[in-house]
Every structure is written in C-alpha cells, then in structure tokens.
Design a protein around this nucleic acid. Structure first.
Lengths: 237, 237
DNA sequence: CAGTGGTCTAGACCACTAC
DNA sequence: TAGTGGTCTAGACCACTGT
C-alpha cells in the first residue's frame, strides 16, 4: 500500500474518531509531512483522497477543514461511486439469484454500439432476479460479449459474475458510465420484483469496461424503489 | 488557468476530434511532457483529470488508452457530478420558476441535523416549481439557514439562488452529498409537476456546503421521470 | 532488457488570507 | 508580513509489461 494511502486512512480514522476539531483547520500540510516523515506533496495527495470523498475542504490561505455535514450524517463510511456487483454491495446479507433468461444472440444496433462491437459478435443476453434475504430486490438485464467472458454458465449466474470475472478469468474492471432514472414498472418488474402497478423502479443503465478498455457489459438494473438509494458525492473543481 | 488544465483540455479536444487511435496508447507521459514543455508530473496531473472523467484508462507497463465506450456514446461532452443549479444545467433553454412556498421557520430535528444547526436557528423553507421551456420539470423543497443567505426575496427566487449566492453574496459552493431515489408522486407532484397517479418521480436529496464548510442547503428535488437522467462516472481506484 | 505508468522527494514560486 | 494551500520542477526509484 502506497504511503499516501496509509496517510489518508490514518487521517480518515482521526476524523471519524473526532480527534480533530470541527471549528479549526486540521494541521497544515507541512506539519503533517513532518509528522508522517514524508514530503509535502505526499501529504497533499493523501488529503486529495479525502477531499474527493467529500470529507475535507480546503481554503487557500487559510487551511484544510472537515466538512461538518459529512460528519453528522454518517457519510464517513460511505464509499461513493463504487463499481461493485450487488453481492459485495450488501455484504453480510444473503444474496441469491434466480436466472430468468440465459441465451446467446446477435446484438441489436443499440447493444452493439454500446459494447463497441459489430452486429456479428455474439453476446450473452441474461436476465437475473437478485434477492436479498429472500426478498426480491433488483432485476438485471445484461448484455456481454461472449468472447470477453468465456465459460459463463448457470452455476456462475447463481453466484457473482464479477467474482467469476476477477477471480477465475483474471480480468480487472476499470470503471463504468452510468445513467440513473426512474421508470414505471414493466411486465418483468411486476412479475418478479412484485411491483404494484404504481410502484416506481429505479433504473441504473451502465456500460462497464475492463482495464484493457473493452466494454464488457451493457446492463439495466431495475431496483425496487423502496429498497435502494444511490449515494454520491459531488465536489467543485 | 493552470498549465495542467490547459493540457487536459487540449488532450480532451484531440480525443473528441479523433486525433488519437482507439487501438493504440496515446503518447507516453514523457513525450507529452516534451511536447507541452513541462515536467512529467504536470502531464500526469492533466491525464488524471481525464481518467477521472472516464475518458482514459491507464495500464501500468503498457500505456494510456482511450475508453472506447466513452467515445462512442457521446460521453465526451458530459461533465459528471457537477454541483450546478438547474438554471445553468440546461443552458440555452428557458428556465422559469414559480414560488409555491416561501417562509421562515424553526427547523425540524431532521433539517437541523442535516444543516448542522440547532433547533433555534431560523431557516428558509421554500418550495419552487421549475419550468423548462414552459413545461413543469422539477419541484424543489429547500431548507437554508437564514444567516448564511441573507436578503433572499421573491425576486431572487424567480431567478437562480445559486447566482445570487455566488455573484451577489460572494459565496463559494464547495460540493454536496447526494442521495438519489425513485418515489411515488405526492400531492404536490401531482398538482404542479402534473404527474399522473402512476408517474414515478426521481428524487435527489442533497446537503450542499460552502467553501467555509457550512452546510447551506438541505433539499429534495423531485424530477419528472420522463425528463431527467442522472449521469455519472465510476472508476476503480 | 527497454519502456511504461506509480510513487515520492526536496525544493521553488505564486495566490490568497489574516493580522 | 507570515502562513496557508496551489502549482510546478527535475529528478529518483519501483512495479509491471512486453520482447
């Protein structure tokens, strides 16, 4: 683990435990550099992490301060904008999957363009219902190029595709582009998510890509509106 | 404008215009440093910006590449996770505001805790309907401590509060913590957003804070589901 | 092995703030 | 004026990738 990460972890811990006052700046960068026995640039980088988490803000010519609302709202523990499969997202709760559709087909124009492949490249088309502690939670419709994720089968689909990709195939997920919207329930939502006709769903459309740049997944995850909140932090440049 | 920002803008332009191949790495950091007449660290920082925008990814020992799906999906122009008032968000379209409620009151426990104030600190409570090109688009319920935003009046409310804060009061907005969820329409949504009983709404709950650390706004923005998509980028560390 | 990005240093100067 | 963070430099060494 790099030094700047150790430092940011340590400072995050101090903030959580209330070791720094909310009304004064935390120690200045040069003092922190001396304390941690490193250069000022390394401290700055460590603080960058916490600023981007919405935990700290800086005021030029004044100092670096703790964001009060982050403290009092328990956001200290929220890791935002993660690219996590559902299985890891809800650690500690029992996630099961019911496979509704699992087939291979040629992609539509829309799917092909989002996955940056041509119309002759086979893709998996799969629909899964994910249950948390036995209750329907989210239904996912996913398209993935077959050649990127070889060997997908029902056993994998009942567990975590992300785990299969990272552990068994040795792939690395780099990130994703996401769109979040609200929608009316469709046939599948009503049937599997047990949505009432007037229950909205929270849809997350995303294109995820590997660390070799290939988009490997184009998916629509539709969540029960009463069981999912998307949390994020926004900071000015 | 700092040098690293000029460089990231220039490289973003080159990516947009297709001047770099999608199948090869872009020039390495040392070459770019020579081209732009700066140190390698400055180039690295410029590229950091584009990586965090989801436009580039790096592969250690290999090079820096363009994210294909970002290119083909027109995401080059999306600035994600901005803290913008609606007025700026929809530049070029006509945004009008209808003030539904504008009053001063003592905050509830929930509001006080999110704004990090005590129960005796007066807050504005305002509800505004925002129309875009004459059509109802979003209804906002906002709480703001009076002492942070003095002089708020109906004239300001019909325009942009963010503009008033930044230009007239000289305040700087630092960022916000956000939650996004889907919900059923309530009475106000049906009346002002003209939601049908089964039209969902997309709710954005946020606590925004100034660059002096004070939370200045606790708000719930409820968007028509057919007129709003929240776009974001997620990258692995 | 050479070439890439990842980290880190020890300084420098600047812009801004408070006093 | 002193102290803060913002930027930038010219190097250094390391980790990882390909040949």
């Amino acid at each position: 683990m790099p030094k700047y990460e150790k430092i940011s972890n340590e400072i995050r811990r101090r903030i959580k435990e209330g070791l720094y006052s909310l009304d004064e700046p935390i120690p200045d960068e040069i003092s922190l550099a001396e304390e941690f026995g490193c250069s000022r640039m390394t401290v700055k980088r460590a603080l960058d992490v916490l600023v981007s988490e919405g935990l700290l803000y800086r005021k030029r010519g004044h100092g670096t301060f703790i964001v009060k609302s982050a403290m009092l709202n328990g956001l200290v523990n929220v890791v935002s904008n993660e690219t996590l499969g559902l299985t890891r997202l809800l650690e500690g709760r029992k996630v099961t999957s019911h496979v509704i559709t699992f087939e291979v087909l040629f992609p539509s124009d829309e799917v092909a363009s989002h996955l940056c492949i041509n119309a002759n490249t086979p893709v998996y088309h799969l629909i899964r219902l994910r249950n948390v502690d036995g209750e329907p939670y989210v239904i996912e419709r996913t398209y993935m190029p077959v050649h990127l994720i070889p060997g997908l089968n029902e056993t994998v689909l009942h567990g975590s595709i992300y785990h299969y990709m990272t552990h068994d195939l040795g792939l690395t997920i780099a990130g994703s582009h996401r769109k979040i919207r609200a929608d009316k329930p469709n046939e599948l939502d009503r049937q599997y998510l047990q949505c009432a006709p007037d229950d909205p769903v929270l849809e997350l459309e995303q294109v995820s890509f590997l660390n070799n740049g290939e988009p490997f997944e184009y998916s629509f995850s539709r969540h029960r509106y009463d069981k999912f909140v998307f949390v994020t932090v926004s900071t000015r440049r």
